[in-house]
Amino acid sequence: MFESIGWAEILVLIVAGLFILGPERLPEAAAWLGKTLRKVREYATGAREQLKSEIGPEFEEFRKPLEDLRKIRDFDPRRAVTKHLLNDLEDDYHHKPNGHAPSTSGQAPVVQPPVQRPLGYNERPPFDPDAT
């Protein structure tokens, strides 16, 4: 339930509660909050159990789309795009040189370009007159 709240946010909430409620009312407020959350959790569990008993075996069929929606909610587009792009580049570089699948029909192997090393201290980059 509180997966996105970290320890820093909890600490800020405690300090804010201490200033707003004061040290004498803060324990009472924390106890009330704990009881309320426990009741809400019990109501949700009871409702789920009641639905499960009334619907029967079809309940799992209804849960499957909800689990799919939960996966979509947890979807991180930045990580997915990065993974997709890097995997495609890696696959293209190692498995499909020049956009074709490697052949095993006796042809000469495709020579990979040499790996470029970083320039050393005071080392000049190579000069290519055709590139300018």
Score class of each variant (00 low, 15 high):
residue 1 M to C: 08
residue 3 E to M: 07
residue 4 S to L: 09
residue 5 I to R: 00
residue 6 G to Y: 00
residue 8 A to C: 07
residue 10 I to W: 03
residue 13 L to V: 05
residue 13 L to T: 09
residue 16 A to N: 02
residue 24 E to W: 06
residue 24 E to C: 06
residue 25 R to H: 11
residue 25 R to F: 04
residue 27 P to D: 01
residue 29 A to P: 03
residue 30 A to N: 02
residue 33 L to D: 06
residue 33 L to F: 08
residue 33 L to W: 02
residue 34 G to Q: 06
residue 37 L to R: 01
residue 39 K to Y: 03
residue 39 K to M: 06
residue 41 R to S: 14
residue 41 R to G: 13
residue 42 E to W: 04
residue 44 A to L: 08
residue 44 A to V: 06
residue 45 T to Q: 14
residue 48 R to Q: 12
residue 49 E to K: 02
residue 49 E to G: 03
residue 51 L to K: 09
residue 51 L to D: 09
residue 52 K to Q: 15
residue 53 S to L: 10
residue 56 G to Q: 03
residue 58 E to A: 12
residue 58 E to W: 02
residue 60 E to F: 10
residue 62 F to P: 01
residue 63 R to L: 13
residue 63 R to P: 01
residue 64 K to M: 10
residue 65 P to D: 04
residue 66 L to H: 05
residue 69 L to I: 06
residue 74 D to H: 10
residue 74 D to F: 09
residue 76 D to Y: 04
residue 78 R to W: 06
residue 80 A to R: 07
residue 80 A to C: 05
residue 83 K to Y: 11
residue 85 L to T: 12
residue 90 E to N: 12
residue 90 E to I: 06
residue 93 Y to K: 05
residue 94 H to Y: 15
residue 95 H to C: 13
residue 99 G to L: 07
residue 102 P to M: 14
residue 103 S to V: 09
residue 103 S to Q: 11
residue 105 S to D: 15
residue 105 S to W: 05
residue 109 P to A: 12
residue 110 V to K: 10
residue 114 P to H: 11
residue 114 P to C: 08
residue 119 L to D: 07
residue 119 L to S: 11
residue 124 R to H: 10
residue 126 P to I: 03
residue 128 D to C: 10
residue 130 D to T: 12
